[in-house]
C-alpha cells in the first residue's frame, strides 16, 4: 500500500524508515492510486517542465498584452530596465516568474501548478535554480514530484483554490511547492525541505484573493513574482538549518483555518480588497460586458 500523503509527518517517517528519497513515495502513489506506469509519469513530468520552460521563454519574447490592457509586457520591461536593484540573478527570477504568469493572463499555454492563477511561480523558481546550479532535467523532475507531494498534503488539509482559501491557497501553495523543491534539488535533508515549506506558509499566510474586475491579472501577476522570491528566501533560511518553530503540518492547518475564516469577498469574488478600490471599480466597468439581458420575473422559473 502506497503512502497516501495525509501529512508531512508520515511522509518523513516513511523516508526515514525505508531510506527512500522524498520523491520515491510520490511516484509509488501515482502508480498505485492512478494506475500509471513509471515511464508515463516521467514523460508527463518532462512535458510539464517543457511547457513551463516554454512559458518563461514566451513571457520574455512574445507580445504579452492582455485584452483588458492591464498586463502589458511587464517581464520584457523589467529585463530591459537599466537598474538592477539586488542582483542580476534576482532580476532574472522576477522576470521569469512574472513573464510565465503573463503568458497565462494573455491566453498562452501554461501548466496549472497547482492552479492557473499561480502558474508563473514554479516555472520561475525551477528554471532559475536549474540555471544557477547547473542541475539536470532529471533532478528538476524529482523536484516536481516533491512539489506534487507537498501540494497533495495541502489540498487534503487546507485548500489549493482561491475561491476556497484565498490567494494564500494558490500562490502560497505554489511558493511552498517551489521552496521545498529548491531545498530538495540542492540536496537538503528531509527536515530542511519541510522547514522550507513551513517558512513559506508562514510568509504567505493571510493573503486574500482580490482580482481586479475578476480577471487573473492584477494583482495575480506581481504576486507570482513575489511568491517566487519568497520561495527563494524560505529555501535560504531552511537550508541553513533554521528551525521554523511551528511544525509544517501545523502551518498547513493554520493555512486551512485562515482560509475558512476569510470572508467571501476575499475569495475570488472581486468584491473586496484591490477589486473594491475606486480604480478597481472603474476598470471593472470598462472590461465587463455591458450588453447583458436580464430575464423578466417568470413564476415558472422560480
Amino acid at each position: 500500500m502506497s503512502l497516501l500523503f495525509n501529512d508531512f509527518a508520515s511522509w518523513g517517517e516513511h523516508c526515514a524508515a525505508t531510506g527512500e528519497p522524498l520523491y520515491q513515495p510520490v511516484l509509488a502513489y501515482e502508480i498505485e492510486q492512478k494506475g500509471r506506469t513509471e515511464d508515463e509519469i516521467w514523460t508527463g513530468l518532462q512535458r510539464a517542465y517543457d511547457v513551463m520552460r516554454d512559458a518563461v521563454h514566451e513571457g520574455l519574447t512574445g507580445d504579452m498584452t492582455s485584452r483588458s490592457g492591464m498586463i502589458n509586457n511587464g517581464a520584457k520591461k523589467i529585463a530591459a530596465s537599466p537598474v538592477t536593484v539586488l542582483s542580476p540573478e534576482f532580476k532574472q527570477l522576477i522576470t521569469r516568474a512574472l513573464g510565465a504568469k503573463e503568458v497565462n493572463s494573455c491566453m498562452g499555454r501554461v501548466v496549472a501548478a497547482p492552479t492557473a492563477g499561480a502558474s508563473g511561480i514554479l516555472p520561475g523558481v525551477l528554471v532559475t535554480i536549474q540555471d544557477l546550479h547547473k542541475l539536470s532535467d532529471r533532478q528538476i523532475l524529482e523536484g516536481l514530484l516533491v512539489a506534487a507531494g507537498i501540494a497533495l498534503i495541502i489540498e487534503q488539509n487546507a485548500s489549493l483554490a482561491g475561491a476556497v482559501g484565498g490567494c494564500q491557497a494558490e500562490t502560497g501553495s505554489a511558493a511552498a511547492m517551489g521552496s521545498g523543491a529548491i531545498v530538495y534539488c540542492l540536496g537538503g535533508p528531509v527536515e530542511q525541505v519541510f522547514a522550507a515549506v513551513a517558512v513559506t506558509i508562514q510568509c504567505m499566510l493571510g493573503l486574500v484573493c482580490d482580482p481586479v474586475a475578476g480577471l487573473v491579472e492584477v494583482p495575480c501577476v506581481v504576486r507570482n513574482a513575489s511568491a517566487a522570491a519568497i520561495a527563494f528566501s524560505s529555501a535560504q533560511i531552511a537550508i541553513a538549518g533554521i528551525d521554523p518553530v511551528i511544525p509544517v503540518d501545523q502551518c498547513v492547518a493554520a493555512l486551512g483555518e485562515v482560509g475558512q475564516a476569510m470572508e467571501t469577498r476575499y475569495k475570488e469574488t472581486a468584491l473586496g480588497g484591490l477589486a473594491a478600490t475606486k480604480r478597481g471599480k472603474e476598470i471593472e466597468k470598462m472590461v465587463l460586458v455591458q450588453d447583458v439581458n436580464i430575464l423578466p420575473d417568470d413564476p415558472d422559473e422560480a
Binding site: A112, A113, L144
Partner: peptide, 11 residues
Amino acid sequence: MIGPVMIGPSS
C-alpha cells in the same frame, strides 16, 4: 497538482 497543461487564464 502539476497540471493540467492548458491555455490561460483560468481553468
